[in-house]
Amino acid sequence: MNLLDTLLRCVAALVVFLTFPLIIGQTEHKVMAHMQGRLGPMYAGGFHGWAQLVADGVKFAQKEDIVPAGADRRIFQLAPAVSLLPYLFVLLVVPVGPHGFVGQAVDAGIFFVLAVMGVGVIGKLMAGWASANKFSLLGGLRTAAQLMSYELPMVLAAASAAMAAGTLSLTGIVEAFHWWWLPWQAIGAFVFFTAGLAELQRPPFDMPVADSEIIFGAYTEYTGLRFAFFLLSEYAGILVVCALTTVLFLGGWHGPLPDSLGWLWTILKTFALAFVVIWLRVTYPRLREDQLMRFAWTVLVPLALVQLALTGIIKVAISQ
């Protein structure tokens, strides 16, 4: 391993980080529109508005950057970066294909990912507090409470996958995958994906940014590029959660094609899950704040514990 190779991998991760969320965002525009009987963007770029998000990006880059008079300037300006960058690190360690097709394998893989993703919540609290806006503060607190509540089932479900594989390395988990993991880890997959969705504050779990109650939560006062960073972090988050669900529970690159095309499976499964994320957004109404919290603690956490028990018993039974 030399410096150039590593740098290339890092830049590749950055490129994926900047392009794939745009693809997901554009898919969301179109899928959501068609699910509501609309067409969605049709102009930018010519063919079915494919360049809409590029145009949005250009617009965001040119917009005035406003920091409210009462805000805590430094923290207000730093918050978008703090909430965005953790997802970049996750993308580096997600294995795409077999034989080392990964940005950089990290031994503590899954634990590294969960720890790094947990840092994003600080960015949202910073944004909520530094805006000097009641609605922002309330949104920030709601975000933090939601992120923490759903982090727990997510960690437990991920632990179940790690138990099944007997390793924390993401590559190792995919290598250990067999098709019968699908029924065995089904509850865990459900818990992980749902909790991931809630971590992203995507509808139906978008109470922290509920426009009818608290404007746009912690992001109310943001404009221009900083707001775009928050948006990007949401879509990068979709990519990360879908990719992680693929790797942990859906077998990553395993599929009825030769190993050399394994990366195709990973990407295909990731985008299929991203479609589900969009689908759920269009279909379901927003959960109320108390329902949101109750769902995490009284449904997802017990389910995750059941999955842990199931995984432990079956795994010990198999290995003896």
């Binding site: 009462g70 805000a71 720890a115 840092v119 919540v121 507090w129």
Partner: peptide
């Protein structure tokens, strides 16, 4: 990574939470 997950991801957030729920003025 335990340090990051527990201290950064939850203990500090708990502290921030406590500060922001009680009165933590800007400035």
């Amino acid at each position: 990574w335990v340090q990051v997950l527990i201290y950064l991801g939850s203990v500090v957030v708990l502290v921030l939470f406590g500060l922001m729920l009680t009165k933590a003025p800007i400035g």
